[in-house]
Design a protein around this nucleic acid. Structure first.
Lengths: 314, 314
DNA sequence: AAGGGCCGTGCTCATATGAGCAGAATCCTG
DNA sequence: CAGGATTCTGCTCATATGAGCACGGCCCTT
């Protein structure tokens, strides 16, 4: 397209999109036939001069969702738009809302849903409507925190999801990570804990988030790991944690001895799930989200536009 | 529009604008008739959920131009889009290019064009194409600076405009502001200077910019005014200068004694002009641009989107 | 300079879309 | 709860738009 046509296509686009003129009228104004105008508009779109954005908290980016399905092998993807977002918190909200919407629309409705916990999932639970499902059983799939400052977040998440879904929650009464392997083995052999983990294994769907491997991690905040521990994990290649287990960029366990002291569902079980929904947002989660998708930890991803672009282009 | 319809209109918009589906197809996908889909899309536009931007250095905002003509009584207006602009300099460039485009398209071609000088007009002169006019005489309408650090900018501007327009430039060989009234009177009675000013008065079109009343003004830079002088002018209500003359928000001369020592066309002559093109851009020029438009100093305004919005809503 | 291929143009025709309208559904109001 | 008013729905019809095609000019080759 030469310079003259480029300028004409811009003039035509202004009249078409901003002034709502018909191509015929534009042709008259610019001394062109209406077919030429149509072609100029087509070219303007092809060259990317026209940007159409949907400004709404619930706007999604379907082209990115399709690319995630096609290029990254996901069964499904939900990508929320960044258009009009003012703060990272707002984006978090949007992703949580989208995940809640996705769960609500899910068919068939899962009978037993395994959930992890964290800031993201708590937000999701808050965005669910009461009655979004009926008779839904929720089971925690990894050890909770009772000692962190937002005490009870883990339990509250599972309970809220279950309550609003017309069912009940089964909590996993165990720390996330134990200091000694023997303690972990002992806890897991406890009848109640073993029962919960069995139930978790049998869930027909899973909902989880992922944590970044940095000092602001909930594991550090709640004292399961020290900042030095995290630094060491990062040195070994950790990009973040999934249901409490630290993985590298390939989604492999970074520190087997640490992993052996972590209570909850194994990553292998997650990989076998027919439906595993991962929810992540924010730049700090880019690397771990990539690992989750790359290693097949989830079948469905709910995330933000930036993260999706990172997965596809980065 | 209720919540359900709002969400549906967003889903419809995604399929329509991002996936290029027909309304019929969308109707099928969302279990709606195609008429309902059409109405949802109309509503989405009405509610402002759909933003269409034209991303191009030469993109203009025709609705704003129309409002400037209708609501502010301008004969014509050119508003360049801010969409996709990364720096204030880029916006300056866009405005200068737009002014050059406007001049080039101007019919009838003016025989004598009176011009002021400054960073903005210099940019305009650089964006004109050689041969944009023929036999065009250019005359300076206010005193130049020879002592500023970008020596010769004033002359270079007029000469470039004239040269590229196939004509010659007549420079005004005088300082912008003189220290003593007597000197100013003496200079103006000089045969050459008087001749140039007569020629300027007789120009059939004018092209000028405006300066903000702050310490970065060219008048301060070139030593015609001290920073304290400018502070005093601001205290008296000055918002900026037009062809070297400081005006308040109503476009009235702020300091008559200073004005009497300023060489060049009077503002009254500018107000009588059939064609007076003002070119401004940037937030610092908002107030002075408002004064220019409000007091009828220009018949045509070339500016950026932010400034236009300031004039219309601010 | 003639011939062949290529691109741009303006058309025909099929399709997509918006305006307007009559009936249905819903919502007030007494 | 009846009745009127208002909104909503799905249609018909007119218009706007995009796909495809044949022609003509242009350029390039030989």
């Amino acid at each position: 397209m030469d310079d003259i046509d480029e300028l004409l296509s811009i003039r035509a686009a202004e009249l078409y999109y901003e002034e709502n003129k018909t191509q015929e009228e534009i042709g008259h104004a610019l001394q062109l036939t209406r077919w030429k105008v149509g072609r100029l508009l087509t070219q303007a779109k092809e060259q990317g001069f026209i940007r159409i954005e949907i400004l709404h908290a619930r706007a999604r980016r379907l082209p990115l969702e399709r690319r995630l399905r096609d290029e990254r092998g996901l069964a499904d993807a939900v990508v929320v738009s960044r258009a009009g977002v003012r703060s990272p918190e707002e984006l978090q909200e949007r992703v949580a809302q989208a995940a809640a919407d996705y769960l609500t629309a899910l068919r068939p409705v899962p009978r037993t849903l395994g959930v992890s916990w964290g800031r993201t999932l708590f937000d999701v639970s808050q965005h669910l409507r009461t009655g979004w499902a009926s008779g839904l059983n929720v089971v925690q799939i990894n050890g909770g925190v009772s000692l962190n400052r937002r005490a009870g977040t883990a339990a509250a998440t599972a309970v809220a999801i279950a309550h609003k879904g017309g069912g009940s929650a089964t909590l996993l009464p165990s720390p996330a990570i134990l200091e000694r392997l023997e303690t972990k083995v002992a806890i897991e052999s406890d009848r109640v804990v073993a029962g919960v983990i069995d139930l978790a294994r049998s869930a027909d769907a899973f909902l989880f988030s992922a944590g970044a491997a940095d000092h602001r991690s909930v594991h550090v905040e709640s004292g399961y790991l020290s900042e030095a521990d995290v630094d060491l994990l990062v040195q070994k290649g950790a990009v973040g944690d999934v249901v409490g287990r630290y993985v590298d960029a390939q989604g492999d366990i970074v520190d087997p001895s640490l992993d052996a002291r972590t209570v909850g569902l194994t990553l292998d079980r997650l990989r076998q799930a027919a439906l595993a929904i991962a929810v992540t947002s924010g730049e700090s989660k880019h690397a771990v989200t990539d690992a989750v998708v790359r290693s097949g930890l989830c079948t469905v991803l709910v995330t933000d536009e930036e993260t999706a672009l990172h997965l596809l282009d980065g």
